[in-house]
Simulated assay, not measured.
Amino acid sequence: MLSTRVGIIFVCLALSACGLSVQQSVDGAPQKNHLAGQWQLTELAGQPVQTEKAPYLDFSEEGKVSGFAGCNRFFGQVEVEGLSIHFGKLGATMMACPNMQLESQFMQMLERADNYTMGSNDSLSLNKARMAPLARFERVKAD
Rank of each mutant, 00 (worst) to 15 (best):
V6W: 08
G7D: 05
G7C: 11
I8G: 09
F10N: 07
F10V: 10
V11P: 00
A14P: 01
L15C: 06
A17E: 04
C18P: 00
S21T: 14
V22P: 00
V22H: 01
Q24E: 09
S25Y: 01
P30M: 04
Q31L: 15
K32I: 13
H34Y: 08
L35H: 07
A36S: 14
G37P: 01
Q38V: 08
W39R: 09
Q40H: 04
Q40K: 15
L44M: 05
G46C: 04
G46H: 03
Q47N: 14
Q47P: 06
P48G: 06
P48R: 10
T51C: 06
T51M: 13
T51A: 11
T51L: 05
E52T: 15
K53I: 13
K53D: 14
P55I: 05
P55H: 08
Y56L: 10
L57K: 03
L57I: 04
D58I: 00
G63Y: 09
K64H: 12
S66E: 07
G67T: 00
G67H: 02
F68C: 04
F68T: 01
G70C: 06
C71F: 06
R73G: 10
R73L: 13
Q77A: 15
E79A: 14
E79L: 15
E81V: 13
E81L: 10
E81A: 13
E81K: 15
G82S: 08
L83Y: 07
I85D: 02
L90F: 11
T93G: 08
T93D: 03
M95R: 13
A96R: 13
A96C: 05
A96T: 11
C97S: 00
P98S: 00
M100G: 03
M100L: 09
M100W: 07
Q101S: 12
L102M: 09
L102R: 04
E103Q: 10
S104V: 05
F106G: 07
M109S: 04
L110D: 03
L110K: 00
E111Q: 14
R112C: 01
A113C: 05
D114P: 07
D114E: 05
N115A: 07
N115L: 02
Y116Q: 07
M118C: 11
G119Q: 10
S120A: 14
D122L: 13
S125E: 12
L126E: 07
L126S: 06
L126K: 07
N127S: 11
R130A: 15
A132Q: 13
A132V: 02
P133T: 02
L134Y: 02
R136M: 15
F137C: 05
E138Y: 03
R139P: 00
R139D: 00
